[in-house]
Every structure is written in C-alpha cells, then in structure tokens.
C-alpha cells in the first residue's frame, strides 16, 4: 500500500550506511555498535533536513496518487461508448436526469411485467391452466363421482371455475408474492418510483387478466363438451370478483407473513384440500350435514355453490355465497394490510 514513498528513498540510505556498519560487524555487540551510527545521525539531522521535507512532501501527496492513477484507466476502458471524461463539464452517460414515469405508464408496465412472468412460469401454469382443463375433461369423460341431478359437465364447469379463481387469486398469487418478497423484489420496488397502491393494483389486474383467460379456456372446453350455461353473466362476474378478493386477501396474508418455502407448501396444501373438499368436483351433498355446513363456509365451497346455482340452476345472485365471500375478503385483506411484511 505504502510502497510508493519508499521507492524514492533507497538511493539515499545506502550512502550513509555503507561505511559505518561494515567495520562494526566483527564487533557484533548488538546494543553498542549501532549507537555510533545513531549518534552521528542526530548532529547530521540538519543536513538530512533538506531532503526530509522533499521526501515528505513527495510522500504525503502520493497518498491520493493511487486514487488518481487508479481512476486514470477509466477513460481508456470506456473509450468505446463515449469519452465521458472525468470533468463534470463534459456530459456523461450518468449525468443525472431523475424523474418518475407517469403513473398510468407505470401501472401498465408493472401489470404487463407481472403477466409475462406469470405466463412463463411452468409450475404456475400447471396450477392455473393444466389442472383445471385436465380435470374438467377427464371427469366429464369418466363418471368418477356421482354428480346428483346435474349433467356431469353442468356440475363440473362451475366447480372448475371456482378452482380457477382459487388457483390464480390464492395459490399462484401467494407463491409468486412470497418469492418476490424473499428475493427482495418487493423491497427494491418499494425504493422505485412505483407507488405501493399501483403495485397492488397491478397485481389485482394481473389476477383478473389470468382469470379471464381461464374463463375462456374452461368455458370454451365446457361448451365443446356440451355445457349449457344459464343464469345472468353479471351474477357470475360478481361472484368471481368476490371470490377473487376473498382468495387474494388470504394469499397475500400468507405470502406476507410466512417464509417463501412455507407459503409454497401451505398454499399447495390448501389448494389440494379445497379441490377435494370445496365442492369443486365432489358434490358437498355427499358429506354429513355438519361437515357440509363447514365446507360451504370455505371460500371455495361458497364460490362453487354460488356459481353452480347461477350457471346450472339459473338462479339469481346467491346472496348467501356472496356474503360468505365478502366476510372472507374483508377479514383476509384487513389481516394482510395489518401483518404483511414487505421484506
């Protein structure tokens, strides 16, 4: 580190030393022998004086020299992109020009970014697209469960739609958000110009876009398999939105409080349990009445029942189901707002 000053000195020190030490070597008496040299050194200080300041002044400023010499390669190596020199007068690539994009553009950018990442994620697609489609197709083709008074496809499509909402608004959202939190993406984004509400809105829009794709996919397949929907599309949309809010609150609560690995495991477990017990493919009427009441109060049970009463029975908006979903939504979102940790 401090070699540089010493390089200036060697020419000076051999001169005075050369003489005295040689004769003293035979004497070998350690304490005495150096003394003669130490003695003369004191009187000769004045003579050593002149070089001293020069030695000093060359040594002290040489401290910053490693910095300037270290910096000097910079212009060479950057020669290609542009001669952004070290003087501030010349413009540099890094000359500050801060500012946030308009909020609408940020919202669009964030939403498209999230959608792209989601659609590229194989595991997420398995949950949100492959499993619903395969279940609908298989269970329509093969009479595995008794669907009561309903045509199999008329029973299954509403249940699978409820599964789609759960997979996107709960499982997929929870897992993705948990890993974003674990890798610091949420924290980094919190330091960007993107306002927090814009991030949440972008996530909500992402979920809605994916759900719309699911409805097209599952609905299309259902129609191809002979599904004849009835009821009001508006009631279906109300139910889907209420279900989305209910699941999203629970998913975000999980993602914001548990470790990413725990969220992954728990979200998949809940998905599996409610797939079997939430009235998705197995009618809740087959369960003992006490158990059935509990299962009807789960968000999946309420959403599947509600969708079925509209799409299969042609009933109006099922207020009971909407109320159950609303309670879940309020409780889940409030808990997430309270306990969600961003880092």
């Amino acid at each position: 580190m401090t070699e540089t000053p010493s390089t200036g000195q060697p020419p000076e020190f051999p001169r005075p030393t050369a003489g005295p030490p040689e004769p003293t070597r035979p004497a070998a008496g350690p304490p005495e022998t150096p003394r003669p040299t130490a003695g003369p050194s004191q009187p000769t200080r004045p003579t050593a004086g002149p070089p001293e300041p020069s030695g000093r002044s060359s040594a002290r400023p040489s401290q910053p020299s490693p910095r300037s010499s270290g910096a000097s390669p910079a212009p060479d190596s950057q020669s290609s992109p542009g001669p952004s020199g070290r003087s501030s007068a010349r413009p540099s690539l890094f000359t500050p020009a801060p500012g946030a994009a308009p909020v609408g553009r940020m919202l669009l950018a964030q939403t498209l970014f999230e959608i792209r990442l989601l659609l590229r994620n194989g595991e997420q697609l398995l949950l949100t697209a492959a499993i619903p489609v395969v279940l609908l197709w298989l269970l329509t083709a093969a009479p595995v469960f008794d669907t009561g008074d309903y045509e199999r496809v008329d029973f299954l499509v509403p249940g699978i739609l409820a599964l789609c909402v759960m997979s996107t608004a709960f499982t997929s959202l929870a897992i993705a958000t948990a890993y974003e939190r674990r890798y610091g993406a949420l924290k980094r984004l919190a330091a960007s110009p993107l306002p927090r509400w814009t991030l949440l809105l972008a996530k909500a829009l992402t979920v809605l876009v994916v759900e719309a794709l699911q409805v097209v996919l599952v609905g299309g397949l259902g129609l191809a398999l002979g599904w004849r929907p009835s009821g009001s599309p508006l009631a279906v949309i109300v139910l889907l939105v209420a279900g989305t809010l209910a699941f999203a609150g629970l998913g975000l609560l999980m993602a914001g409080t548990l470790r990413a690995e725990a969220t992954l495991a728990a979200a998949n477990l809940v998905y599996l349990l409610l797939l079997v017990l939430g009235g998705v493919v197995i009618p809740l009427s087959g369960f003992p009445s006490g158990v059935r009441t509990v299962l009807e109060l789960t968000p999946t049970g309420a959403l599947a029942d509600g969708l079925r009463s509209v799409l299969a029975d042609g009933a109006g908006l099922p207020w009971g189901s909407v109320a159950v979903l609303a309670v879940w939504a309020v409780a889940g979102l409030a808990a997430a707002a309270r306990w969600f940790r961003w880092d």
Binding site: M1, T2, E3, P5, S6, Q9, E12, F13, P16, T17, P20, P21, E22, T24, R25, A27, A28, P30, T33, P34, T37, A38, S41, T44, R45, A48, P51, E52, G55, A59, R60, Q63
Partner: peptide, 30 residues
C-alpha cells in the same frame, strides 16, 4: 528520515538480520 533508515539498517546489519519487505510509509487507513 534517511538517517533513521540508516540507523535501522545498520542495527540490522550489526545483528546480522536481513530486513525483509522493508516499507517506509505513513499509517494506512487500515
């Protein structure tokens, strides 16, 4: 100063010590 260095090296010579990696310098930030 040069004299001090001379004194040091002559003490080393007198004691048959080969000073290795001799560095003259100010205290580093370290």
């Amino acid at each position: 100063d040069p004299r001090l260095l001379a004194t040091l090296t002559s003490w080393c010579a007198a004691n048959d010590i080969l000073a290795e990696g001799l560095q003259v310098g100010h205290r580093s930030l370290e």
